[in-house]
């Protein structure tokens, strides 16, 4: 590839930060481009688009995105994003982070932000383990899967993230895998333009850790697996959109509803009289 070649998404990438830190075969590069494509197609003012993350491999995405970008502490991206959005409602605020960051250490923030219907977008890259620290099990690791801290197979039940999001109050809930690039882009675009708390889960390969320890082959093999085992079931009850170890992957858009946001529900002070006396 010539050094002069320009990536089609170059204006949205901090090119001087390349090369990125992600492993070969990782799904993050694809997920990242889907997000950039969606942002560009959305027609949103890029000066008003903000991206926030916590810690982890996915947490590095903001640092490569050429918009206002915040790389916060482990698990805390959501309350940070909430502060940005509520203080300046003109911003379109997206949290892009991993399953461990958003649902283990940050789980409480997720359910409460969803409950409040704060108008922010959450994109969670679920690779079934903690990649950056070398592949430990997390809250989405399937039963029996092997990781560096579940050497005999994981004996904890995982979360079904889409069900959790829907139950907590998200107005838009979808799941895709890294191979569904067009559908994923379209879904992110919808979420960016949707008012309220949106959630998109991306099932994504981690060949270096999770894939290797569970004999899933390289990144390409995992992508092939997604293609062969994904079933699109739009509108089904997210409870039934389960994920199992070596089983089928139910994908699609499960929730798309409207309800007042945190800001919509603020007290209407115009009903009160103004008293400038002390």
């Amino acid at each position: 590839m010539s050094m002069n070649e320009i990536h089609p998404m170059d204006k949205l990438i901090r090119a001087d930060r390349m090369p990125h830190i992600w492993c070969s075969g990782c799904g993050l590069g694809t997920n990242f481009i889907c997000y950039l494509t969606a942002m560009e197609k959305s027609g949103l003012d890029l000066n008003k688009c903000v991206i926030v993350s916590g810690i982890g491999c996915t947490g590095r995405i903001p640092g490569y995105t050429n918009i206002d970008s915040f790389h916060t502490t482990h698990g805390r991206a959501i309350p940070f994003a909430l502060g940005l959005k509520l203080a300046n409602p003109e911003l379109t605020v997206t949290v892009f982070s991993g399953d461990g960051d958003l649902f283990a250490i940050g789980g409480n923030h997720f359910i409460h932000a969803a409950r409040r219907n704060v108008d922010i977008n959450i994109i969670c890259v679920n690779n079934f383990n903690y990649g950056m620290t070398g592949g430990q099990f997390g809250p989405t690791t399937p039963l029996d899967a092997k990781t560096t801290t579940s050497p005999y197979g994981n004996y904890e039940h995982p979360f079904n993230l889409v069900d959790l999001a829907a139950a907590s109050g998200a107005v838009y809930v979808a799941r895709w895998t890294s191979i569904h690039v067009r559908r994923l882009s379209k879904s992110i675009e919808e979420a960016l333009l949707k008012k309220g708390f949106t959630f998109i889960e991306i099932i994504s390969p981690c060949p270096t850790n999770y894939g290797r320890r569970n004999k899933l082959g390289d990144g390409l093999d995992e992508m092939k697996y997604y293609r062969e085992h994904s079933i699109i079931k739009h509108g089904i009850n997210p409870k039934e959109a389960d994920l199992s170890f070596n089983g089928e992957i139910v994908v699609g858009k499960f929730v798309d509803i409207d309800k007042p946001t945190f800001l919509d529900n603020q007290p209407d002070m115009s009903q009160m009289s103004v008293n400038n006396k002390k």
Binding site: L82, G83, K85, L86, M272
Partner: peptide, 26 residues
Amino acid sequence: PEVGGIFIQMEDEMASMNAILGASWA
């Protein structure tokens, strides 16, 4: 609400501290 500002009761103090950092950046 009287002065056009935002009050939010967060889920815990970690969230509270982060929310004010985010708001200040805005």
